[in-house]
Structures are given as C-alpha cells and as structure tokens.
Nucleic acid binder design. Structure first.
Length: 839
RNA sequence: GCCGAAGUGGCGGAAUGGUAGACGCGACGGUCUCAAAAACCGUUGGGGGGCAACUCCCGUGUCGGUUCGACUCCGACCUUCGGCACCA
C-alpha cells in the first residue's frame, strides 16, 4: 500500500471518523431501546471468532451488513444490529500451549483489540448488548440448555466410533469432517471407539427438512436437504433361524424393495455386531484379518469411490423369505455400520456396487426389473432405472414402481419388515476433549451413577488454572479440584464430566441472547425474545450451511417443543455474501496479498473502505480488492465533499436563472431553457432516489453507489452549464447525502452538519421520490429493421402507437433499408421501440 | 460421478426478452506546474470506409434452436468455482 499513488483528500478522514464516532457514542443514538414504538427489525451478521485482528474479510462481511441495517433504520424500523464474539474454541487453547498465555487472557485481549477495530468501522452496534460466550454469564445458559435437552431425552451419552482428529486431540462432529479430513486443520480423521455425548438431531430430521417458512438461498436449502439425506424405503429381515442363534433374523434397509427377488448376496459392515456369530470356524481367520484391515483404514481411504469392492465370505447364509432362497453372507467395507441397519441386501443386477462386488466374487446376477429393451441377455452393468418385473414370483409383469408398494405391503403382511425412512444425517457429537469450552454439567457418582448437575448448582465453572498439555483427554481430567466433586444426591465422592461442548453449541442460540444480553435468571427474557426474535435478516458466509445454520435451526425447533420459544425458525431471511480476494487469489500470508484494513482506514477513512468494499461487485459474488480501485472511491467521496459544500446562491446569479427572475417580474412566460434544466436535474434526483432504495433493499450496494455517482456527475454538469436554481440544487445535495449515509456514515454526517442541517443524518427518514418527477418526458425510440438498430428518435414519452410507427417508417435512415421492400410486420413496444420487418 | 452457480472490453463489473459495455479502475492525450504528485477536462470493445459531419460490419465461453428482436429463454458441449460423494 505504501507504494500506491494515493488520492489526497480535501478533508482529514481520521479526524472526521473520530469526531463522529465520539459524538454518536456520547449522544447514544445507536442505543437500542426495547420500548421503541416503531416496528422492530432484527438484522444479524454472524459473530466473529476473536482471532485478535479484524481482517478485510470481516470488513467485507460486516460493513455492508451495517449499511443494510442503517438503511432499514432510516426506513423507520427499530433496528437491532448487535455484535459479539464467538469466544470459545481451539486457537485460544493452542496459544496457551504454545506461548503459555491463559486462553482467557488471550481471548479477552483479542476481543479488546477487535472491539477497537470494529469501532473504527463506524457501525451502529450497540455495545451495551455485546455478548462474549466464554464468560460464565453466557455459558451458564449453555449448561442450562444442555440439561433441558438431557431431560427431554435429546442429549445422550453413548459408545460410538467417533471422528478423532489427532492434531486437535479431540472428537469432531460429522459435519466437521470434510472428505475425511478435519475441517479445521486438514488432518486425517480416524474412527475411534469412545464414550461421547450426542444431541439427537436425527429426531428432528423431518422437521429440519421443512423450509417453507424461511426465505433462504436455494443453494443453502439444497445443501441442508442433501446433508439430511432422507430416503424412504423398507426395512426387511432375512431369516437366520436355521443357524440356531439367539438372533433369529438379520435386518437390512433398502430403497429398492422391488428388487428383492434379485438378492444374491448380503453384505454386512465389518463392524456389524453379528459378524462374529455368523462366521463359520473355517472362515474365521480370513474374516478377522479383513475386519482388522478395515478398521485400520482412514476415512479417506475408505471413502475413495474409485476403489475396488472387496469383502470376505462369512461361510453362512441367511434366507430371503419371499422366495425361500439361501443368500450368502459377506462383510465388505462399502457397507457402513452407521447407515440404515449396517447390512445391505445385494442386488447385483440393479445396483452398480453390488454388481462390481458380484463380478469380483463370481456371484449370480439375476435380472428382476427388465429395462425396456432387455431380451434376457447378460448385463454389462447394473440397470438402476425402472422397468417391468420379471423373475419375481407373483409380481411378474408389474411396472417396478407399482411393485414397490405391493411388495412392501406383502412384507408388512407377513411381518417380515415395514416401510421406514433412513437419513444420511447422524446425531450431533457435541463433546470435545479440550479445556476451552463449556463444561458439560454432569457428574458420575460411584453410588448413584451418572447424574445431571442440579440447575441451582450452575454454572459449572471452568477452573482458572489448568494444564493445557494435550493428552487426548480433557485437561480438566488432570485438575483435581475440578475433577473431584461431591454427589448432590448421596453426598459421597463423585467425578465430574471433563469433556466440554462443541463451540457450535454456543452459536446455536446466541441470537436469542442479544434480545436481553444481561438477563441472569434465564438464557433470555422470554418477553424480549418474543419481541425481537426471530432474526429478520441474517447475513454471513455460506460455509456454515450444514453446521451452524443447521444446528441453530435444530436448537430453535427443540426450544419451541420445550416451550422455551414460540417460533420454529431462528433466521427468517438469509443472505450469503461472497468472499473477498486480492489480485484474483485468495488472501493468505504465504501469498503476501493480505490486505490490512487498518492502514486504509487510517489513510483514507472508514467511509472510503466501507464504500469501496460495497462497490467492488455484487456482494453475494465476492470481490477482488485492488489498491488502485480504492482510489476511485476516495476520489468520488472527495468530489461529494466539494460538491455538497458549494454555495448554491451562485446558481441564482447565472444568466439563465436571472432571466427567469426577470421574466417573473415582468410577468412574461419564463425561460424555457431554465425550466428544462431544472426538470433535467429534478428527474436525475428522483430517478436516483428510486434506484438506490430498490438496490439497497436487495443488497445491491454496487449499483446503488453507481447510481449515486451518476447523480454527482449530473449535478456537476448542471452546475457547469448553469440554469438550475439553488432550491433544486439543495434538494440534490440533501438527497444525495441521505442516500449515501448508510454506506458512508461519517462524511455524510459531517456534510449534513455543514449544509446547515440538524444532528443527526442517521436519524432522518430516507428521501421519497415522486414518480411523476422521475418520469421521462422525452424518450429515445429505437427503430429496428429486421432486428438491427437503424435509428434512434427522440419522441414524447406519451407518443401514440400510430405516431411512433409513422415516425419510424418516415425516418430516412430506416428508409434506406426498407426502400423498395414490402413491410411484412411492425412491432411496437411502448416507450421502447418500433421493429420493422421487411421481406 | 451427481447437484448447483458462473463465463460480457486491458481489469472489477452493468444491463434478465427491446440502444450491450452503466459506474469505476487502468491506459492514452490535454490543462495547471520549473517539474512531479494530486486535481480537472477529453478519448478509450474490435475491424473497415470517408477530407469531414459520419457510416457500415463483427462482437456477451462454443455450437445449434425459439423470436420481429437473445448477454437474457430452450437444447447440447467446453471451462471455472462451490457443494455432495460407496447413504444401500
């Protein structure tokens, strides 16, 4: 940045920023009042993790969100646009391990710094509502909510193969595993059998699929739908009674019950609990080797779709009750224990995976759904489409879609299974083996067993001193003062749960806390939550589609069912901004293209940085920062500065306007020239008001700013050409400032004052536009001949169709193309064009 | 592999069936200056014709289609970016 040639501003931006930020704070104009009679508008942007430095990405997310909130404010809403910090999490603890700073100290000093940086943005945040979720006043309510979930049977502890990140030394939720790698550090994730805490998100799968109430980008809704992955099918059991085991059958789930007569193998997940019992002695060694090898595989290896289908025969069989056939039992790692029942009925003819597996192990491929052209030949690949039933006993001849229902009914009648639904989504694993999070409020008593902490004993405080060395277990386990406790039931010795909660737990309900951030009897004041919530407009990055955004919806639905809130969706509208990059590439320290906003704010002022970020391009598509580009914004605000402060009296002295005054005095018709000029400027002003309001409403900051630039260009031209009067000019300046105020709050406040208006511009209503004044009196009528533009005619806006067609055909330029040709068709679009079609 | 979004001047982008390139950056020319910076004014998609006012042709990833008219709608393909990915 130091090397850039930079615009020299006519004003001192740093001074201006400081002056107004202090004034706003002193006069409390952004203090949000609960008793304000205006309609409420809750506009929230995702709160940041306190990394310690507010980078340009934060500015890109927050400055436009602030402008939009300010816009709603000027539209007459009582706006809540709060800010806080997502303050629990690993970086703080890692800093503690690396540099010996306590996570609390590290986090709070980062927050201190970021608060200062955030203030420099000049946003309307009401800092008295700030929330910091690593403070006991906040996390106490995490614990309280956890207990509610527990009592409702929605939080449970279970032994499960959890996702383990060796670098983070903790378990992860499924959503935090991306392609088998840890979402945070890209370390390979392993499966590890552990006792873990889960929230029953699956119980809410169907409710989470209902998205009619929410106005969200289709993309995010689709991602959530895919993540939940609902599929309807049939759970059907195969008979094992001939084996003389305690288990008399084995269940499997299928969405293709129409292919049941084509089952020629059964595949179990290697971890399936029946594997040992179903393995015959002669197959034992091979089976055990395969299970061991499968367990050793990482998620990445196991997820690779290119891999050959491998498996091992268990030596035993189950029986397909529909046709009494013996079906060989296999284990194969393409069967997942966590989906359906952990067992797959293999239909090689109609499932490509089963086909590959059958080919490899020489198993029969039996067609039961005939594709349209099938003549009984062998299949080169699985046929997965619909068709006519064959080789399927009583169902032969039916279309497969119809057979599905019939067969399902038949199975239910025989009590061999039932129609059911499976989901891709799993329960949310919320326990983490780390220190810097909310302690899970549970104790283990030798005598009484596992007990939730009593509500009156909350919060379970994080001990201030702890050994942060990562061991794979929570550092809290090593802290005797924390670990050892007393059972509130039998008063005997007990141990505390030492795992802490996933930080997504915090962000799943934080939006409710802003309604009453200092409430100490409940997570939030119910009346205030009802008043402010749900969030009317949420903004943030799309990367949280299946984590934060799904969890927050889950929480809200649970809280509604528990009677804690009265609505079922946390965020009514969602808007995802894109990502800001620099020089066409993602910003990163290694590339050396990281933009530090503070330097630009210092040199050019917050307004230039804010407005430039909004001007770069459509917010949802992200933008490419350029050092020279920002100068354009500085140059323009500089022009606004100068333009707004011109003395409009000078205009009245111009000859054209003088002529008007003279004409008035002499009571003769006023100067047509003057009238025309005034009308022109008026039209520009009113068109701009209309455009900018429409654009800001839809987050189109780039075109809103472009429209304002056009207005300043028109005003500068009008001034130069003369002929407009001071009143029209003043109207232009006033409306320009009001429309610009949400985006550039400091300079507009200063100019508002300097142009003789009362404090504060941010408490004014948005300007109105007059449709009649915005309307064109003369339009450009485009004339096309055979689709090509051949002439442009200036005509009155209210021209009749006949007149327009007559003028079009009379145009010499048009005639040079229609000469001697027959006009076949004339198309007229009012206010736009005449299209002439000739042979 | 499947799903979704996008592809427009030197660059960021505008226009969602009707004047393609608004607005801005950059570049070039000029004014001011001893000079430079800043500022201001002008030009700026490509090609052809004309001394000139001007005028014609081509042009929105590629190829087709619908239409009087397509950046915009439809079909196929290419590229880029996101998301999902053995889910039975």
């Amino acid at each position: 940045m130091a090397t850039m040639r930079q615009t020299e501003l006519r004003y001192n931006p740093a001074e201006l920023d400081q002056k107004w930020q202090a004034r706003w704070e002193a006069t409390g104009i952004y203090r949000v009042r609960d008793d304000d009679p205006r309609p409420k508008w809750y506009e929230l942007t995702m709160y940041p993790y306190p990394s310690g430095d507010l980078h340009i990405g934060h500015w890109y997310a927050m400055a436009p969100a602030d402008a939009h909130a300010r816009f709603r404010h000027m539209q007459g809403y009582n706006v809540l646009h709060p800010m806080g910090f997502d303050a629990f999490g690993l970086p703080a603890e890692n800093a503690a391990i690396k540099r010996g700073i306590h996570p609390y100290v590290w986090t709070m000093s980062n927050i201190e710094n970021m608060r200062r940086q955030l203030r420099s943005m000049g946003a309307i945040y009401d800092w008295s509502r700030e929330i910091v979720c690593c403070l006991p006043e906040y996390y106490k309510w995490n614990q309280w909510l956890f207990l509610k979930f527990y009592q409702a049977g929605l939080a449970y502890r279970a032994l499960a193969a959890a996702n383990w990140c060796d670098s983070c030394q903790t378990t992860l939720a499924n959503e935090q595993v991306v392609n088998g790698l840890c979402e945070r550090c890209d370390t390979t994730v392993y499966r590890r059998e552990m006792e873990q805490w889960f929230l029953r998100t699956t119980r809410y799968a169907d409710k989470l699929l209902q998205m009619d109430e929410i106005d969200w980008p289709e993309k995010i809704k689709t991602m959530q739908r895919n993540w939940i992955g609902r599929s309807e099918g049939v759970q059907i059991s195969f008979d094992l009674s001939h084996l003389g085991l305690q288990e008399r059958e084995i269940a499997t789930f299928t969405t293709r019950i129409d292919t049941i007569y084509g089952v020629t193998l059964m595949v179990l997940a290697p971890e399936h609990p029946l594997v040992a019992k179903l393995t015959t002695p002669d197959r034992k060694a091979e089976v055990e080797a395969y299970v061991l090898q499968a367990r050793r595989q990482t998620e990445v290896e196991r997820l690779s779709t290119e891999r050959e289908k491998t498996g091992v025969f268990l030596g035993s069989y189950c029986v397909n009750r529909l046709n009494g056939e013996r079906v060989p039992l296999f284990i194969a790692d393409y069967a997942l224990l966590t989906y359906g029942t952990g067992a797959v009925m293999g239909v090689p003819a109609h499932d490509q995976r089963d086909y590959d597996f059958a080919k490899r192990y020489g198993l029969p491929v039996r067609v039961v759904v005939a594709s349209p052209g099938w003549r009984g030949e062998e299949l080169a690949q699985a046929w997965v489409g619909p068709g006519v039933m064959v080789n399927s006993g009583p169902f032969n001849g039916l279309p497969s879609d119809e057979a599905k229902g019939r067969i399902a009914g038949h199975i239910e009648g025989g009590k061999w299974g039932r129609r059911t639904v499976s989901y891709h989504m799993r329960d949310w694993l919320v326990s983490r083996q780390r220190y810097w999070g909310t302690p899970i409020p549970v104790i283990y008593c030798d005598h009484c067993g596992m007990l939730p902490v009593r509500e009156e004993d909350l919060p379970v405080l994080l001990p201030e001193d702890a050994e942060f060395r990562p061991t794979g277990e929570s550092p809290l386990k090593l802290h005797q003062g924390f670990f050892n406790t007393t059972c509130h039931q039998c008063h005997g010795p007990a141990r505390r749960e030492t795992d802490t909660l996933d930080t997504f737990f915090d962000s799943s309900w934080y939006f409710l806390r802003y309604a009453s951030p200092h409430e100490d009897q409940a997570p939030f004041d119910p009346a205030l939550a009802r008043q402010w919530c749900p969030v009317d407009q949420y903004t943030g990055g799309a990367e949280h589609a299946v984590m934060h955004l799904l969890y927050a919806r889950f929480f809200t639905k649970v809280m509604r069912d528990l009677g804690i809130v009265s609505f079922g969706e946390p965020f009514l509208r969602l808007y995802n901004q894109g990502t800001i990059i620099a020089g066409g590439a993602k910003m990163s320290k290694s590339r050396g293209n990281v933009v530090a906003p503070d330097e630009y704010v210092q040199a050019l002022g917050a307004d230039v940085v804010r407005a430039y970020l909004m001007f770069l391009g459509p917010w949802e598509q992200g933008g490419d920062w350029s050092d020279s580009g920002i100068n354009g914004m500085a140059r323009w605000l500089n022009r606004v500065w100068e333009l707004a402060q011109r003395d409009p009296q000078e205009l009245d002295a111009s000859p054209v306007v003088m002529g008007k005054a003279e004409a008035d005095r002499l009571r003769i018709p006023i100067g047509a020239e003057h009238q025309k000029k005034v009308r022109e400027l008026q039209r520009a002003i009113h068109k701009t008001v209309k455009r900018v309001i429409a654009d800001l409403d839809r987050f189109k900051f780039n075109t809103a700013l472009a429209a304002l630039m056009e207005l300043t260009n028109a005003m500068a031209r009008a001034w130069e050409q003369g002929g407009v009067d001071s009143a029209t000019w003043r109207e232009g300046v006033e409306k320009l400032l009001l429309l610009l105020a949400p985006m550039a709050p400091h300079i507009t406040e200063e100019l508002w004052e300097r142009t003789g208006h009362a404090y504060s511009i941010h408490q004014q209503a948005l300007p109105q536009w007059d449709e009649a004044l915005a309307a064109d009196e003369v339009i450009t009528l485009v004339v096309q001949v055979n689709g090509k533009v051949r002439d442009r005619l200036q005509v009155p806006a209210d021209i009749s169709e006949e007149e327009a067609k007559r003028l079009a055909l009379a145009s010499p330029r048009v005639q040079s193309f229609t000469q001697g040709k027959r006009v076949e068709k004339l198309v007229y679009v009012p206010g736009k064009l005449v299209s002439v079609v000739v042979e």
